[in-house]
Amino acid sequence: MHSSSVESTEVNDENRRALADRERPRIEVVGRETVIVSPGIDLPRANLTCTVECASGVRATDEWTGVPVAALADAADFSGDTTHLRVESADFAADVPIRPALGGIVAFERRGDRDDGEVGLPRLVADGVPGERLVKRVERVSAVALNAEEEPRVG
Rank of each mutant, 00 (worst) to 15 (best):
E118M: 10
T61E: 12
T61G: 02
D115T: 11
A107E: 01
T34V: 13
T61C: 06
V87I: 13
R24V: 11
V144Q: 02
E7F: 15
A18G: 04
E139W: 02
D21F: 05
V35G: 07
L146D: 06
A148I: 14
V35M: 12
H2I: 14
T9Y: 08
T83S: 14
K136Y: 00
E7C: 14
M1W: 07
E63N: 10
G104R: 05
F92V: 09
P100F: 07
R137G: 00
G155W: 02
V52Y: 02
A101Y: 03
G117D: 02
A93Q: 11
L124Q: 05
V154N: 11
P122F: 00
E132Y: 10
D113K: 14
E33K: 10
A107S: 04
A60Y: 05
R16G: 05
A145F: 08
D13E: 11
R86Q: 13
H84W: 03
A143N: 07
V29S: 01
R153M: 15
L72C: 06
V58F: 08
E14C: 06
A46W: 13
A18R: 15
R59L: 14
A20Y: 12
N12Y: 08
V29I: 14
V125T: 04
E149R: 14
R45P: 01
A107G: 01
P152D: 07
L43E: 09
P68Q: 11
R137H: 05
P44L: 13
E23F: 11
P68M: 15
P68W: 07
E118R: 13
D127N: 12
S5R: 13
V6Q: 12
I41V: 15
A148F: 15
L85T: 01
E7K: 10
F108W: 04
A94H: 05
V125W: 04
F92C: 06
V106M: 09
P25R: 09
E53P: 02
V87D: 03
S89F: 05
D115V: 11
A148K: 09
G104C: 14
D115S: 10
D74T: 12
D77W: 09
R110T: 08
A20T: 10
T83M: 06
V96G: 05
L43Q: 14
L146E: 05
G66T: 01
G112E: 06
V125F: 02
P152N: 07
D62F: 04
R153G: 07
T51G: 03
